[in-house]
């Protein structure tokens, strides 16, 4: 098991966002968290990468409990992160955005990452010097994904990669995720748009009100995930 979340609680002030959820992400699989707004999907991702503290519970990644490790060290342990709303570095060029994801890895690793990602996404070459803030939403999502993958992470966290994108871009991003996975990267993603996301996933967790309601292989939970009450 690459990532194991046990009884995780997250609170913001007096509000409980996650009430004791447990999630397993096996090596090499693509795990999907589905659910409506406020179901606790983003809180789960943020707790794993360390942007919000865990009030209780354990997050075990690759055999290490992350809960006491600061955010910036978690990334360096091999977790890539593509945030909700993309949040590329707006004033920095596309190339610099990607390289920032491989900060401190040395010139050779950085160039290796850049070459690989450019071969997968021609966009990174076409828009190399343009400030990322000027790109369209879909283009920014490609940049955010590339930035997350630039450090060759073992686990890729993707928070709502399809958010606000046109259908044509959803297809492109889906293809992109498939290509990135070809290197054997394990993926944990959240998505409100269950239908396209379920095509990518191998396992799924259906969340609601800060709890996991149903989980299992994609075929088992597909109907539940698409039921109205969770969307």
């Amino acid at each position: 098991m690459l990532l194991r979340i046990e009884n995780l609680w997250v609170r913001y002030g007096g509000i409980t966002a996650l009430s004791g959820i447990s999630i397993d992400v096996p090596q090499g699989e693509t795990v999907l968290l589905v659910g409506a707004n406020g179901a606790g999907k983003s809180s789960t991702i943020n707790a794993i990468i360390g942007l919000v503290p865990a009030a209780d519970g354990r997050i075990v990644f690759d055999g290490t409990d992350l809960t006491r490790i600061p955010c910036e060290r978690r990334a360096r342990m091999g977790i890539g992160y593509s945030p909700e709303g993309r949040r590329v570095f707006p004033t920095m060029s596309v190339t610099d955005n990607v390289l920032a994801g491989a900060f401190g890895l040395g010139r050779r690793r950085q160039m290796e990452a850049l070459d690989w990602l450019r071969s997968v996404f021609p966009l990174l070459v076409e828009r190399a010097t343009q400030p990322a803030g000027q790109l369209s939403g879909g283009q920014q999502q490609i940049v955010a994904l590339s930035r997350a993958m630039a450090s060759f992470p073992k686990l890729l966290l993707m928070d709502e990669p399809f958010l606000g994108l046109a259908p044509v871009w959803i297809r492109q991003i889906s293809d992109a995720i498939t290509q990135l996975r070809a290197r054997g990267t394990t993926v944990l993603m959240t998505e409100q748009m269950a239908r396209p996301a379920l095509k990518l996933a191998t396992r799924g967790y259906v969340m609601r009100g800060g709890e996991v309601r149903r989980s299992g292989p994609v075929d088992v939970i597909r109907d539940v995930a698409l039921a109205d009450e969770y969307l």
Binding site: I49, G50, L51, C71, E72, R73, A75, R76, Y81, P83, R87, F89, P90, T91, M92, D96, L99, A100, G101, F103, G104, Q110, R147, A148, S151
Partner: peptide, 24 residues
């Protein structure tokens, strides 16, 4: 330089930069 890239990333969005492994 890598240093400059890191500094500009922290200026643009500190939380996301930290989540990419940059150390403030």
């Amino acid at each position: 330089t890598d240093l400059g890239r890191g500094l500009r990333a922290l200026a643009d969005d500190r939380a996301v930069a930290m989540a990419q492994g940059l150390r403030p």
